[in-house]
């Protein structure tokens, strides 16, 4: 437990974007799975992700971030070519 002596004056947060260290991936019940043969690298999944958890691989295909993805499924709904499917986290 932090005491008042440990926190900075005015409770200022000194690291920008420190929420990145918080794991929101635990909230997920379904995970997106890419079928790369259907993916056309359009990037709609990237632009529509509310959690900024889709990036790029070196070969140009999208890469999802397991640490932050909450599994909302917007990427799967918006994918034109149906390259993204949601599967249960338990599988």
């Amino acid at each position: 437990m932090l005491s008042w002596k440990d926190i900075p004056m005015g409770a200022i947060v000194q690291t920008p974007g420190s929420a990145k260290e918080y794991r929101t991936g635990d909230w997920r019940s379904q995970r997106p799975v890419w079928d790369l043969s259907k993916c056309i690298k359009c990037g709609l999944c990237y632009i529509y992700c509310p959690d900024a958890s889709i990036g790029w691989k070196d070969d140009g295909y999208p890469q999802w971030d397991e640490f932050h993805c909450k599994g909302c499924g917007i990427c799967a709904t918006e994918c034109w070519t149906k390259a993204i499917n949601l599967v249960e986290e338990t599988e």
């Binding site: 920008p16 974007g17 918080y22 909230w27 509310p50 959690d51």
Partner: peptide, 29 residues
């Protein structure tokens, strides 16, 4: 095209918004 949109995020992941929040998507954009 989404590829040429600025890649740098100024609204970082790890926020506690509900699953599928449209507001955080708007803030991010």
């Amino acid at each position: 095209t989404p590829r040429v949109a600025p890649q740098k995020e100024y609204f970082a992941a790890g926020h506690r918004a509900c699953v599928g929040c449209g507001e955080m998507l708007a803030v991010r954009l």
